[in-house]
Design a protein around this nucleic acid. Sequence first.
DNA 1: GGCATTTGGGTAGTATGCTAACGATCAGCA
DNA 2: TGCTGATCGTTAGCATACTACCCAAATGCC
Lengths: 153, 153
Amino acid sequence: MSIVHAMPGFLIRRLNQISMSVFQERMQRLGLDLTSVQFAALVALSENPGIDQATLAGLIAHDRVTIGGVVDRLVAKDLVARRINPQDRRARQLALTDSGATLLQRLIPEVQALQHDILAGLSAAEVAAFVTLARRTTEAGNDRSRAPLRPRD
Amino acid sequence: MSIVHAMPGFLIRRLNQISMSVFQERMQRLGLDLTSVQFAALVALSENPGIDQATLAGLIAHDRVTIGGVVDRLVAKDLVARRINPQDRRARQLALTDSGATLLQRLIPEVQALQHDILAGLSAAEVAAFVTLARRTTEAGNDRSRAPLRPRD
DNA sequence: GGCATTTGGGTAGTATGCTAACGATCAGCA
DNA sequence: TGCTGATCGTTAGCATACTACCCAAATGCC
């Protein structure tokens, strides 16, 4: 066993790899072509219609460039509408399309169900313990991230 | 607070974001241009000199394409030597250069020290609990990943 | 009003991290 | 020996995920 295999950084990368793979596999089985980042963006837009890309980036902890590409692809799939804000012509107002809202309602229970598969081998109590620790440390380390979480209000 | 912010998948992505950022920041402060993936590859090669790229990929849980690019960059930095295996002309034998071995010895204590910063806000006992849970679930979910860990022996 | 600063979005560039497909090569087997 | 299948590395393509930089537009301050 290598020394790297016990390092938190390595374990976290593996967790992320497994998480993304579980998500993608489920989407494929549903016949959908959607990533977990795109899902998070749809949820954020559903909860905050009319926000611009920079705000969206802060709500799901991404940089603006990445969000620009994600929104491009969501617009191309007709899940999100993007238009210039007349009050601030720099900004793009974002909102779910009808088709995006419909898809999201179908997706939410699926995505909630697959969270269980991500942490395979753990009991319900252990999953809860993991989530508690993860929430505390991501909050403590928020500003260490290059794209911190910036919740509204 | 959005419903996604409590999902394990989202928390894991945040953890990975913070982890990569902490690593990059430390490397920058050391005046080095090295990613965590490149570090993991150097460690694996130090522990297993002479392996080929596919074996290296399995040891640090990456697909062969990604490892090809990582090795390209390590060779360009003169940290790794790559040559065709005369016994199997498909394969590339990899080994650290002297400069790679020297750098790695300097890096290992630094990287071990920064692991602590990744899980900010947790006590030593909580870090240990996190690592235990993470190890168990990544082992259980190994084959769910697209690029599973394939240890030798 | 005029001007410096800030902000939103974009381009260019780099590195992961994956799929699908391909050529070269090797291993097993009739 | 010749064929079949597996394996190693690579290319092409896509989607994150960032930095650095730029332009346009809004904001704050005098």
